[in-house]
């Protein structure tokens, strides 16, 4: 059993606050996710996700505000448009598309945050290490 390395890109206004909420409520979730705070989930370009994989991440998660709640009104529309396509591209390239995870977590949803992290970590643990598959 290996410990998967997961990078989580969290939007500053909702998901990062959601992580705070989970922390303040002392909820337990696996420590595999390294969190990177970004101004908006729309900031996450496909290049960033691919580079993260290239650097050895086993899974990448992008969490943003719910559609309609974006601090920049339509920033997460970009995420909702580009990430599904990137998932498809991963699939067509022979990379498990489950390695990329997109969800919406608001500042109040500490519990959802903990569940999302737990489920995703379990999901990635079931896959072989990404670097191994690329050899």
């Amino acid at each position: 059993m290996y410990e998967p390395k997961i990078i989580g890109f969290l939007c500053n206004w909702c998901s990062y606050r959601g992580a705070d909420t989970a922390g303040m409520a002392r909820m337990k979730y696996p420590p595999n996710v390294k969190i990177i705070r970004v101004p908006c989930s729309g900031r996450i370009s496909p290049e960033l996700v691919l580079r993260t994989f290239r650097e050895g991440a086993d899974g990448v998660m992008v969490l943003g505000c719910h559609i309609g709640d974006c601090h920049y009104s339509t920033g997460n529309h970009r995420t909702a448009k580009r990430m599904p396509v990137l998932k498809k591209l991963l699939e067509y390239s022979g990379i498990e598309s489950e390695r990329l995870y997109i969800n919406w977590v608001s500042a109040a949803e500490g519990e959802k945050f903990a569940t999302v992290i737990k489920d995703f970590t379990e999901q990635i643990s079931a896959l072989p290490p990404f670097v191994e598959t690329m050899k």
Partner: peptide
């Protein structure tokens, strides 16, 4: 691998 060039271009 994965080929950044080709995947970025595909995106």
């Amino acid at each position: 691998n994965p080929s950044m060039y080709h995947m970025v271009r595909a995106m």
